[in-house]
Design a protein around this nucleic acid. Structure first.
Length: 1003
RNA sequence: GGGCGAUUAGCUCAGUUGGUUAGAGCGCAUGCAUGACACGCAUGAGGUCACAGGUUCGAAUCCUGUAUCGCCCACCA
């Protein structure tokens, strides 16, 4: 067959056109199960990358894993959907855009205003949101791009609104005043998990608090945050601490502000052995103190303005003098001033250097302040009456429901050790703060009213109320839920919140006309992420809930995208294949939910995975996925995490340019072991200066090998065989030993690849493919085949073609581009490989006898080559083989031509008692001795054989000792004992042969 | 502080339920312009499986402890 392929694989010229072919054939597009469709469903939702992000190695490895699974199942004939999309990533995106605007225009978000800022972020999203998805395409991801979702698009917004409404109505969402982590730079609450700790060299200051009514007596309190004393409302000692028993019930005066505060006793807060055993209590500015304040009903004095300055509360009169710190930065200027004033008053007892951890906001990199504010929470804990999931199941609470799903096996986490972290985290059942004081995100769908007049409070929960609004129809009243936000304080005024179901903008309008104001805050990004598996597939399905309206009118008012679109250069929003997919059709959720696998890194197992399980159960009544696969994290060669700031990261896009996408994928797959971290040595590319890794050469070289082997096979297929297509060679026909061997290896490989994919052992998949294709097929079978091809053997051609075709199929999930391209070069090929049927392993092809025999032939061949390498004179010289028994002699005889063609040396003799030729180099194998006469270097031979003998002796001694041990013979399984005996016998024969050869060298 | 994990060839990693001479790739050494491929071919060298105990007839594998490293969670005024 004539074949025109260049001698080196060029990924650049192949990848784009091949991807285009797939898109044109619409093979990635999956639809809801139709009538009589009996196919199994396989589905994955992508962990949506951040809209501001660029592809990094984490995406690349996770994308590769998901694509391997997706392509494998597609070829298996499953109805396969990989749902793509991107995340609006609230705080991260807003921070980036704000920063950019400030750098360019020196304007803050307050200068721009809410609408303008949000418009700018949408612009940003349109510009950068598509980038990462096209990068995912460049690694070959076979997502159903028609369905691409964005966590802020209408489809997702509807799900968010519906879930919020449902939880609000059920009392799972509530508003509360809590101490939150406050980012004073971005001026928003941030979650615990958005905080990193940095070790700071600070100081521990001991401050003297005068005891009220006891002149010259002081309580000494140590603190790393002296400025918080302005908000102290108690000092605490341990109840059993003898040193302070006489002070129980007394008061101290807070210096500088002059406030009289109680001395309380608290065994939880105070460790009497630490410091002076006295703790200042600042309920509004420290989590532990907050808890203490709640226990003792202490006043909470908030000292902070939202931008991190001291407010008017930070002032007072002390010893007749006025002090004020208002307007000063809390942890810096105010601290300095407080320390200076205390110093002047002689109230500083001691200052010591002290290393401690300070929480910083991950987004703004500025220190976090604990801050008392009103926030919305999802209650994770248990309810006395329990909660009801969407399938009617009763659970004690949301966290418990998600824990049960893992403990009872409905969700399986692989590797299973990660289940512990998941369960421990959920087990804390800490309420989830879901409100963020940002402008970019899903706005909280609650309208607040200051209300006068009676409301009927439901008996079960004080926040639940029934209230019919007169200006809403009865029907409309069903679409709102009411909670008391703040009970009446003076004059019976209470604050009430109305949540509105999605799809009723006219109700929202009526609420506003009647004095309601929508909460300005937005939801934590993870709230919409938690709904990702169901929102992308159309929950709440319009036909399933009569109460819910179809999606058309949803959120038109609150979504500024329509306005933003007008100002964009191309005005493309939902037409774009990346940012606005087709709406989910009815039945999509039924077909593909629960999804099959979720693949992710371990860092978001709690933040994201646990919450998806919770919301999936609560909203849809079933788990969101059956399997969670947690892949390893790639580090640099020194074991550090890769990051932009460290400059130690490898950019997958660079690797695609230099090595090709298949090389990237193969290498990543091969590295995807079950360990928690994998190291990738990073080096600078000499040409481009970009970071790269020699690891990727493995993939590139392998791709090149596949390319050239295919080139060779295809160019050596007779047209007749090519025309006949590639019928699998008939096994009944008498096949040569090596034919049976390679078919046996192929069958084993098919088995390994499938079972390893099913077990998420991606490294094994890559290794098995590599070993079969390179070692078995290319190094051995193909080399053997060359002589037979020259002799006009047609069997070997069809076996080669069969092996190639099957290999391309097996390789396709890992290396889709090159395999698809080569597939198109196969004879008479019009269909695409991407949808070709997955090969079945033929159990009849397994041939252990052939595998054993070929192993002997291989070692004989290698030993002859070794002699040839050692003594160049040995090349082409006749070889004498002295097999240990007749069976081996026969096997060799069968493969005589194979050995001869692989070594270029004729086999002069093959007999059990073949005599050693004079001056022969000898190699001793367990099954056979190999001689080539007339080439010897006595010293070298002696050294080589002596070393071999010593090694063997060690093993023989070990085996003898074991067999001499009565306990071993009595207790070990019979097969093990017999195996060891046989082996020992063989080893002893081998040993004798070596000794004999050595003796002959001496003479 | 609590939890999880790692330690096997110079490097990156495999090593199924404990069992028969511990494997692969890269790198290294030597040779090779072999009618697919030098991103290649052939051959070779290289390992007291971190350390110390224990269980067992038998341990890289199971248990305990030690050391080093990494990750997650929580943080003490």
């Amino acid at each position: 067959m004539k074949i025109d392929l260049p001698p080196q694989y060029d990924p650049k010229s192949v990848e784009k056109p091949v991807y285009q072919r797939w898109l044109e054939a619409r093979v990635f597009h999956a639809v809801a199960r139709g009538e009589g469709d009996a196919r199994q469903a396989f589905s994955i939702v992508i962990p949506p990358p951040n809209v501001t992000g660029a592809l990094h190695l984490g995406h690349a490895i996770n994308g590769t894993i998901q694509d391997i699974l997706t392509r494998y199942h597609r070829m298996k004939g499953d109805n396969t959907l990989w749902m793509p999309g991107i995340d609006h990533a609230g705080i991260a995106t807003q921070a980036v855009v704000e920063k950019t605007i400030f750098e360019k225009e020196k304007k803050s978000r307050h200068d721009l205003g809410r609408e303008e800022l949000v418009r700018r972020i949408w612009e940003w999203k349109e510009q950068f949101g598509t980038r990462i998805l096209s990068q995912l395409q460049s690694i070959g991801a076979s997502c159903d791009w028609d369905r691409t979702r964005f966590t802020l698009d209408d489809i997702c917004a509807r799900a968010v609104r519906e879930a919020f409404f449902k939880m609000f109505k059920d009392g799972l969402i509530f508003r509360g005043k809590r101490l939150v982590n406050w980012d004073t730079h971005l001026q928003t609450a941030v979650a615990d998990d958005e905080i990193y700790h940095e070790t700071v060299q600070g100081q521990m200051t001991s401050i003297k608090y005068p005891v009220d009514g006891s002149p010259d007596e002081y309580l000494i309190v140590a603190t790393t945050r002296p400025e918080t004393m302005l908000g102290d409302t108690a000092v605490a000692v341990h109840p059993d601490d003898e040193r302070y028993k006489h002070l129980h019930g007394k008061h101290v005066i807070v210096p500088l502000v002059g406030r009289r505060i109680p001395i309380i006793t608290d065994g939880l807060l105070v460790d009497p052995s630490f410091g002076t055993g006295v703790v200042k209590v600042t309920p509004a500015h420290d989590p532990n103190d907050y808890a203490t304040g709640v226990r003792h009903s202490l006043e909470q004095i908030n000292l902070l303005t939202p931008d991190g300055k001291v407010n008017e509360k930070g002032s007072g009169v002390f010893l007749g003098k006025q002090y004020s710190y208002a307007g000063l930065k809390f942890a810096s200027a105010a601290r300095k001033a407080v320390l200076a004033d205390l110093e002047a008053l002689g109230l500083i007892a001691d200052v010591k250097p002290h290393e401690h951890e300070v929480g910083h906001s991950d987004r703004s990199k500025t220190p976090i302040e604990p801050y008392l504010s009103d926030q919305w929470f999802v209650r994770m804990g248990d309810y006395s009456d329990g909660i009801t999931l969407a399938d009617g199941a009763k659970k004690s609470g949301l966290a418990q429901a998600a824990m049960d799903a893992v403990t009872d096996g409905r969700v399986k986490i692989t590797p299973d050790r990660y289940a512990k972290g998941y369960l421990d985290w959920l087990g804390q059942k800490r309420d989830w703060c879901i409100s963020r004081q940002l402008w970019w995100g899903h706005r909280i769908p609650v309208w607040m009213f200051v209300w006068r007049g009676p409301v009927a409070t439901s008996p079960s929960d004080s926040q639940q109320v029934k209230l019919e609004l007169p200006y809403l129809t009865a029907e409309q009243n069903k679409q709102v839920a009411v909670q008391v936000i703040r009970p009446g304080e003076k004059g019976g005024e209470i604050l009430i919140g109305f949540a509105v179901r999605p799809g009723y903008p006219e109700i929202e309008k009526l609420l506003e006309q009647n004095g309601g104001q929508q909460d300005p805050d937005v939801l934590d990004t993870w709230f919409s992420s938690a709904l990702w598996p169901i929102s992308t597939m159309g929950w709440p399905e319009s036909h399933a809930t009569s109460e819910t309206r179809p999606s058309g009118s949803v959120a038109a008012k609150s979504n500024p995208r329509a306005d933003a679109a007008k100002t964009l250069p191309h005005g493309r929003v939902s037409e774009s294949s990346h940012s606005g997919g087709i709406p989910p059709e009815p039945g999509l959720l039924e077909t593909f939910y629960p999804t099959s696998v979720l693949s992710t890194a371990r860092d978001i197992l709690t933040l994201w995975v646990a919450r998806m399980v919770m919301f999936g159960l609560y909203c849809k009544g079933d788990v969101p996925f059956r399997d969670v696969y947690v892949h390893a994290v790639i580090q640099d060669g020194e074991g550090r995490t890769m990051s932009k700031s460290k400059g130690n990261g490898v950019d997958p896009v660079d690797i695609i340019n230099s090595h090709g996408a298949d090389a990237l994928r193969f290498t990543l797959a091969q590295m995807a072991t079950e360990t928690q971290d994998i190291r990738m040595p990073v080096v600078k590319d000499a040409k481009t200066g970009a970071n790269t890794s020699p690891k990727f050469d493995i993939g590139r070289n392998f791709a090149n090998k596949i390319w050239n082997a295919s080139r060779f096979i295809l160019s050596n297929i007779d047209d007749q065989i090519a025309l006949r297509g590639n019928a699998r060679p008939e096994l009944e026909k008498t096949l040569a030993l090596e034919d049976r061997w390679i078919l046996s290896r192929l069958a084993a490989t098919i088995h390994t690849v499938a079972s390893s994919i099913n077990a998420f052992h991606f490294s094994e998949v890559a290794t098995a493919l590599y070993a079969f294709f390179w070692t078995d097929l290319c190094d051995w079978y193909l080399e053997i085949a060359k002589a037979r091809i020259r002799a006009g053997d047609s069997t070997v051609q069809s076996i080669l073609l069969h092996c190639l075709e099957t290999s391309l199929k097996l390789l396709h999930p890992v290396m889709p581009f090159i395999t698809e391209e080569l597939w198109s070069k196969l004879p008479n090929r019009t269909s695409l490989l991407v949808t070709a049927p997955w090969p079945a392993a033929d159990p009849a092809a397994a041939d252990p006898a052939a595998e054993t025999q070929i192993a002997i032939i291989q070692s004989i061949t290698s030993q002859i080559r070794d002699i040839q390498n050692t003594y160049s004179a040995a090349r082409g010289k006749p070889v004498v083989l002295a097999p240990r028994n007749a069976a081996t002699q026969q096997a060799i005889e069968q493969s005589r031509l194979v050995i001869e063609s692989l070594t270029g040396s004729p086999i002069a003799q093959n007999a059990v008692d073949a005599p050693k030729p004079p001056d022969a180099a000898a190699r001793v194998l367990p099954d056979v001795q190999i001689f080539i006469g007339g080439v010897i270097d006595k010293a070298a031979e002696t050294a080589k054989l002596t070393k071999l003998r010593d090694q063997l002796l060690k093993h023989i001694t070990g085996s003898r000792n074991k067999l001499g041990n009565e306990a071993f013979v009595a207790k070990a399984p019979v097969a093990v004992v017999r195996g060891l005996r046989d082996q020992l016998a063989k080893q002893e024969e081998e040993f004798a042969a070596i000794e004999k050869n050595l003796a002959e060298l001496q003479s």
